[in-house]
């Protein structure tokens, strides 16, 4: 509950689509945050969401002075259990040292703009309920509980 001085956002921060040369930095940033290197996963995700854009899929990065400060990935999903098309966010990361400077908000806003251009009016996401950092971030962007309930079972 104590307040700490927030780092300042670089004025050079810009949001743009990810390109292949970003991959090493993206993989490193994700590993820095999660502690798990997922090179194959991110290469495949980039192929699906960054390189080919025939379908509404978006892989955006926040870059400042050549450094990747964060990224966000999403797509338009349609008619899952009868629900009309909606924007779906399934990854967002911001470098720990530059959090609370609005980088995540810029990424989220840019992705929402892309979803709007794709013609959808709802944005959804799903995460572990224990992931309070990201859950709080999405709450701060105005997201609230939606109409879905996530269920799972353990396969024997």
């Amino acid at each position: 509950m104590t307040s700490a001085a927030a780092p300042e956002r670089s004025s050079k921060l810009r949001i743009r689509p990810a390109v292949s040369r970003d991959l090493p930095a993206l993989i490193a940033l994700d590993e820095e945050v999660t502690g798990i290197a997922k090179r194959t996963y991110w290469k495949e995700t980039f192929q699906l969401y960054g390189a080919r854009r025939r379908v509404p899929r978006f892989f955006l990065v926040a870059e400042s002075d050549g450094t990747i400060e964060g990224f966000i990935v999403g797509e338009v999903r349609a008619w899952e259990f009868g629900e009309p098309p909606c924007g779906w966010i399934f990854a967002v990361q911001v470098r720990p040292g530059t959090r609370l400077t609005g980088t995540g908000t810029l990424l989220f806003g840019a992705l929402c703009d892309a979803f709007r251009r794709a013609g959808v009016q709802k944005v959804r996401t799903m995460m572990l309920r224990g992931n309070n950092l990201v859950l709080s971030f999405f709450r701060s962007q105005g997201m609230m509980a939606g109409p879905f309930i996530e269920l799972e079972t353990t396969l024997d």
Partner: peptide, 12 residues
């Protein structure tokens, strides 16, 4: 009343 989903997306 909520607006219906965008045509561009629903036509995919």
């Amino acid at each position: 009343p909520a607006k219906s989903a965008g045509k561009a997306a629903s036509d995919r």
